[in-house]
């Protein structure tokens, strides 16, 4: 698909720490199957402003499919908050946090961030990529600390 020029933007995903934890929790809760979800935010800066933990309707340890109706609800919710869906995360239960051939061949949008959570080892590993025209480019994941409310 088109819009490959978007990947010339800085390769960075800026993820609030609480979303990072929610993502890991969702992936661990999904075991033994793969888990998945969507990320909303700013497509230019890569700032994530919302996370949607979705059902894996493939019900599989080797494949995931984001529940289409939850995708629609997430898309509308993001739009209502002035943002958009900018990426997807999913777990690999027994392999590295690296896009598989299946991930690459089915990547829906070259402007999206593709976050992989590996649960192979004791400690989960989180990495993020851009995938365009079959090419895989890793990007930085910057964890943003919790914002303290002024007293």
């Amino acid at each position: 698909m088109a819009q490959v020029s978007r990947i010339t933007l800085p390769l960075m995903l800026r993820l609030p720490a609480e979303f990072h934890l929610q993502m890991l929790g969702h992936c661990l809760h999904g075991l033994p199957d793969e888990a998945c979800g969507l990320l909303a935010g700013d497509p230019v800066t890569g700032d994530v402003t919302a996370i949607y933990r979705t059902r894996n309707v493939a019900d599989s340890a080797r494949y995931y499919t984001v529940d289409p109706r939850e995708h629609l609800r997430a898309d509308r919710d993001a739009e209502s908050h002035g943002s958009s869906i900018i990426g997807v995360f999913h777990s690999h239960t027994h392999t590295d946090a690296y896009p598989s051939p299946t991930d690459v061949s089915q990547a829906p949008d070259p402007s999206w961030h593709y976050v992989l959570v590996s649960l192979r080892d004791t400690h989960p590993v989180v990495r993020s990529y851009r995938i365009a025209e079959g090419r895989i480019m890793e990007e930085s994941v910057v964890l943003k600390p919790h914002e303290l409310t002024p007293s």
């Binding site: 998945c36 080797r62 051939p101």
Partner: peptide, 17 residues
Amino acid sequence: ISILPAVAGGMGATAEG
């Protein structure tokens, strides 16, 4: 009417897939 990409993937059928 809404059109959205189907979002799917996964580690696949092979050990390294």
